[in-house]
Write a protein that binds this DNA or RNA. Structure first.
Length: 409
RNA sequence: GGCGAGUUAGCCAAGUGGUAAGGCAGAGGUCUGCAAAACCUCCACCGCGGGUUCGAAUCCCGCACUCGCCUCCA
């Protein structure tokens, strides 16, 4: 398997070390899910994992939920509910949507609110190492304590400051020593969730939760770190700084895999812009195969603009394939080399779809194994394959985690 | 400022060195009392300029233009 690595700009081989492939994909902030852009990202990594497992490569796939976050708190207030209720509900919807799209569950599906002890441990370590400092009840990461902050996004310090300014951030926050320093732990405002910590009652900042969960579940180095390309800066840049500072192991991720952004009506599809095409709504009118085909027709790194015509087109294509596909008795045969080569070439799903079409049209029984590799049912009755998707683990009932949230109102 | 994707017919789009898939739209035809549907046929100087090669949409160099992302965000 060869994948494009954002950090080096090159397509690199994934294999070359022992043990399971460790994959961490940045998950959702559960307050307004699941739009087609989310689906694009998680379907892409679903196919990646399927392709690796089809080669008998062991994979450990972790996908997190960032459920402690400014937006969730704000939205919960708007909806007159609590942040954790909202997060639990939206996460369940997300799981149901992905299961409907035949996306296999990750092996571990942790959420930030249940990783607080780990987060505190990590922040303490960074503070002890001199990578972090306290200021007015908050703890900040000291960006100039690392030499190469900006190496993932390839931005100079000047550029990062400039971009931040243009984006309306406050580089002049007097509590920060450097405009680029970012919050690791913050004092909770009244009504916000809070946990006891060495710095007083507070909550984690954005970025640190992902480092904590990745290190906890995958160790000091991971093989593939994925997510939307909008996360490159500052989120993943900051994860690198935190993780490598804490562990001394670099690179934190051997390959950074970023998925292109989906646009709709001239703008990036985004919760804040409210220009969402929800998977839930599409599933009312289209079958999941058609939606998957639409997504797989686009290479994961390609930014593209959604139009409903494309989905209609994908549906016609999918129906034609379903009609022409001859039933296959068992799960016979492995996918042909052409499919595996396409997927191993930086996950070229458009090419793999074309091979699938040729197999079906040629009456080649290997079409079934190929469709499975791409997560397409193609008329298969609700059988074992579809049953596998029901395995999304409920992430929120682990009593071993010491959650010390106080009634927040 | 950086990074990324892209530029192929009216539109979408495949193509990974051997004289351009497919879909939509359009034109003509078969069929039909008429129409629809279905089926058949037709419709491309591959952004520009160099280079490599027997041969380039495809490889190399340069240029132009479009779009996207960059401390809410998959």
């Amino acid at each position: 398997m060869r994948l494009h690595n954002t950090e080096t700009g090159a397509v690199q081989p994934l294999e070359g070390r022992d043990g399971p492939i460790r994959i961490y994909v940045c998950g959702i902030t559960p307050y307004d899910t699941t739009h087609l852009g989310h689906a694009f990202t998680y379907v892409a990594f679903d196919v990646l994992v399927r392709a690796l497992r089809a080669k008998a490569i062991k994979v450990r796939y972790v996908q997190n939920v960032t459920d402690v976050d400014d937006d969730i708190i704000r939205r919960a207030r708007e909806l007159n509910t609590t942040w954790d209720r909202l997060a639990t509900k939206e996460t369940a919807l997300f799981e149901a949507d992905l299961a409907a799209l035949n996306v296999h569950a990750p092996d571990v599906f942790p959420r930030a609110s249940q990783t607080i002890p780990r987060i505190i441990e990590l922040v303490s370590k960074l503070e002890a190492q001199g990578h972090a400092y306290r200021s007015d009840g908050n703890v900040y990461f000291r960006v100039d304590s690392v030499t190469d902050y900006g190496r993932l996004s390839r931005l100079s310090r000047e550029a990062m400051v400039k971009v931040s300014g243009e984006r309306g951030a406050d580089p002049a926050d007097p509590r920060k020593r450097d405009p680029l320093d970012f919050v690791l732990w913050q004092r909770s405002a009244p009504g916000e969730p809070l946990w006891a910590s060495p710095w007083g009652e507070g909550r984690p900042g954005w970025h640190i939760e992902c480092s904590a969960m990745a290190l906890q579940h995958l160790g000091d180095q991971i093989d593939i770190h994925g997510g939307g390309s909008d996360l490159i800066f500052p989120h993943h840049e900051s994860e690198i700084a935190q993780s490598e500072s804490a562990t001394g192991v670099r690179p934190f991720a051997r390959i950074w895999a970023h998925v292109g952004m989906l646009r709709y009506r001239g703008e990036k599809m985004s919760k804040s812009l409210r220009n969402l095409v929800l998977v839930r709504d599409l599933l009312q009118r289209y079958d999941s195969d058609s939606i998957r085909v639409l997504l797989l027709r686009h290479h994961y790194r390609e930014p593209w603009a959604y139009e409903e015509e494309q989905l209609q087109d994908a549906q016609e294509w999918t129906r034609a394939l379903q009609q022409r596909s001859k039933p296959v008795n068992a799960e016979e045969g492995a996918p042909p080399p052409a499919v595996r080569e396409a997927l191993e070439d930086d996950l070229d799903t458009p090419r793999a779809l074309d091979v699938l079409r040729q197999l079906v049209e040629g009456g080649d029984a290997r079409w079934r194994a190929t469709a499975d590799l791409l997560g397409l049912g193609l008329g298969k009755a609700s059988s074992s394959e579809m049953g596998k998707t029901l395995g999304w683990p409920a992430p929120f009932h682990d009593p071993s985690n010491d959650r010390r949230v106080r009634p927040a109102r």
